[in-house]
Structure formats: structure tokens, C-alpha cells
Design a protein around this nucleic acid. Structure first.
Lengths: 220, 220
DNA sequence: GTCTATACGGGGATAGAC
DNA sequence: GTCTATCCCCGTATAGAC
């Protein structure tokens, strides 16, 4: 466990500290101490602090892109696939506490400039696929036709994203104590988010569907 | 405009810089320069950097709480009040570009510890009122009974919150260029968010409500 | 209340031995 | 590849004149 290559030890320690304190407050010496290596080695491996941070983010986002992509595969009708998507999102965000924090920090500190590549990749894959899923449902007359698929996709993603990223505020609203969202609450909210999104997307029962016996005609 | 009391000049400059760069990267001298006053004066007025930051946040959040509260007043059925709420949220978040960034920074940098009072206040007023609005709609059989009101409230708020806070990523997803969400896009997304939330909340047309089932009430 | 000068510490980064 | 020692800049904060 501790025989990991020095480089990875540094990366791991840096990830934790950057997530917890941010780029500016985290010092090279702190990272070295946390990683159990000499601080001068950071310069040997990464050149400078900025590039170390960049590599931390690369590694993190690469894993995230890969995981969400692999979990978006599979067949099924739009409804079950949307449920799977939301569940996967919750799982990824909850898998490591550093995920949401680091992403949020990068968003606000550098306008995601260290992660543009990966964000574009996400856009070209996961997000696009989510949009397509919505459109597919619309073509099948299962989802409302009046929703903009991209806006709908943002709304779908926003629920869990905000739940995790704004947890310090959300937990006050929900009367929760812990500093990190507990697994049970995550599970419950993820289920809610999926159903909330589906309720928003699905065509109201009696509206169009002629197939399902449109209620007994009062005539006769 | 420039004859504002020194204290406020400092507060204004600090708000902008803290929002743009964060607490750690912003220096006292920078704030002084931006405010057009001697940096040593910051210590005369605020004691130290931390307390200056604290006051910036206090002022900001106080205004926010006041505005959302005042805009949550008024009568009407749950549907129109929810539309008003979402519109107000969009207006507040868009009113000053520093709002979303500072709030997000505070969330991630200090777990909202500088704003606990105001967050609790928000929780006790706006958020609570939003929950009550949902419950009221449920009692009136207009909203689905199976939704947890607090989770629903989080989902409602999350859409616009995420839209603004994650804009650097959202803009990539939406193929938008500008660094700040343009007024038109804000307007469109806000409208979408309200309709999305309503579609999620309303009981399906044919299910129970025999009366009006007010779906597309887009009359203004 | 406003300014100048400066003490003080800490953090990033490098040189060079082993 | 790893470690020690150190340089140098820069940011916070204070002292004290005006």
C-alpha cells in the first residue's frame, strides 16, 4: 500500500489537500509531508506547483469521464436509461469525497481552464448522450415535446451536482449534521432526483396516449 | 460615485477581487489599489484581512436574504407563486456577477462558515417557505403527494444555482462563448427551469384532478 | 484619517551533495 | 532519485509621522 511509486504518492496527497484547502492555501511542504516524501521531490517530478495541480486534475477528470461513459452504455427504453444515468452520477460523485470539491474549486478558481479538454470530452460524450436520450424519448412520444433537450439535460444533472457541491448549505436546509453527505441520504436523494426528472419529462398520462383506453366515454 | 465613504470603497473593491480571485490570491495591496486608497487603511477599518472578508460576505448575504424574502411574499396559487420564486432567483443571481462566485467560494473554501447565520436565515425563511408552497400544492391535490417537499425544494433551487455556479462548464455544454451567462440565456433557462419544476410537481392531467389541470398557462 | 517605512514570516523554487 | 540547505520574493501586519 505504501510501496506505491513516489509519483503517485505525491499525486494522492496533493489531490486530498487541494480538495480540502484549494490551490493557494496548499503548500509544497505540506504535500511533501502528507505524502511522506521530501518536498524537493515535487520539483523533480512535476516541475512546479502549477503543473502538479494540473496533473492531479487530469487524472481525476480522466477517471470521471471514463466512468460516466462506461456507465452510459447499455440498452433499454429512455426511462430506465435515465434512471441508470442518475444512479451512475450519484455513484461517481459519492465515490470519492474529493471529486465534487476539486471540480467546484477548479470551476471557480480557474474557470475550468485546467480541465477544458475533459469538459469538452464530457460534452461530446456523456452530455451529448443524455441529450440524445431525451430526444429519443420525445420522438417516441414518451417525453414532452416542448422541452429543450439541452436545458433538460442541464436540469437533470444539476440536481445531484448541486446536492453535492453545495452540501455545506444543503445540509443546513435539510437539518443534517455531517460534513459529508451520508450514503443513505445520497441514495434517497438520487432516487428522488431520478423520479423528479422523469415526472418532468414524461407526457402527462391522459394527454396524448390514445392507446391506454382514454377513460370510459360518458356517451353510452 | 467616487465620494463614497472610504469604508464602502474598500468593501466594493474587496467584493470584486474576492469573487474573481478568491481569498488567498487576493492581496491587501491589490484591494487598496483597486479601491483607490492606501492599503494600510484596510487595517484601520477592518483589523485584518479575514474580518474584511467576513464583512464583505455579511453585506452580500444580507442583501440576498432580504431580496429573496421580499420577493417571496404575495398571494396566488402555488403554481404562479412557484413561477415567481424561480424568476426571482434568476434575477437575484444575475443581478451581480459576484454573487454566484462569492457564494460558491465561501461554500468550498470555508464550508459556509462565514455565512452560517445568513444560510440559517435563508433556511428559516425562503427555503422553508418554498417547502410550504410545495406542501400547500400537495394538500390542494395540485402537486403530486409522493414527493418529499424538502427534496423537491432542493431540486427546484438546484437548477438555476447550478446553471450559474457551474457556468464555465455549462457554457461548454451549451456551446456558448461568453464568460458570463448572457441575459437572454438566463431568461430562457429560468423559464425552462420553472416549467420543468412545475411539470415534475403537477399531478398528471388525467390522473385525479377533474378540474382545470392548469398546464400551459404561459399567458405572461 | 491618511500616509510612509519597515519588521516579520512563510512559501516557491534551486543548487548541489550523496 | 533522494536529501539538505538556502535564496529570494512577496504578503500580512505594525509603528509612528502628519
Amino acid at each position: 500500500m505504501r510501496d506505491a511509486p513516489t509519483r503517485d504518492q505525491i499525486l494522492d496527497a496533493a489531490e486530498g489537500l487541494f480538495a480540502a484547502q484549494g490551490f493557494a492555501r496548499t503548500t509544497i511542504k505540506q504535500i511533501g509531508r502528507e505524502a511522506g516524501v521530501n518536498s524537493a521531490l515535487l520539483y523533480y517530478y512535476f516541475g512546479d506547483k502549477e503543473r502538479l495541480y494540473h496533473e492531479v486534475l487530469q487524472r481525476l477528470m480522466a477517471g470521471l469521464v471514463e466512468r460516466t461513459m462506461s456507465q452510459l452504455q447499455g440498452e433499454g427504453d429512455p426511462v430506465t436509461r435515465l434512471r441508470r444515468f442518475v444512479a451512475a452520477q450519484a455513484e461517481v460523485l459519492a465515490s470519492r469525497p474529493t471529486f465534487p470539491k476539486l471540480i467546484m474549486r477548479e470551476l471557480v478558481d480557474h474557470d475550468a481552464s485546467h480541465a477544458v479538454t475533459q469538459v469538452r470530452q464530457l460534452s461530446a460524450t456523456s452530455f451529448r448522450r443524455l441529450c440524445e436520450l431525451v430526444q429519443e424519448g420525445q420522438r417516441a412520444k414518451v417525453f414532452r415535446p416542448d422541452l429543450d433537450p439541452r436545458f433538460a439535460a442541464v436540469s437533470i444533472v444539476a440536481q445531484l451536482a448541486h446536492f453535492f457541491m453545495a452540501w455545506p448549505a444543503v445540509r443546513v436546509l435539510l437539518d443534517a449534521r455531517p460534513a459529508l453527505p451520508p450514503a443513505e441520504t445520497v441514495r434517497d436523494f438520487a432516487r428522488h432526483a431520478a423520479e423528479f426528472a422523469l415526472a418532468a419529462l414524461l407526457v402527462p398520462a391522459g394527454a396524448t396516449a390514445r392507446k391506454t383506453a382514454p377513460r370510459t366515454r360518458s356517451s353510452r
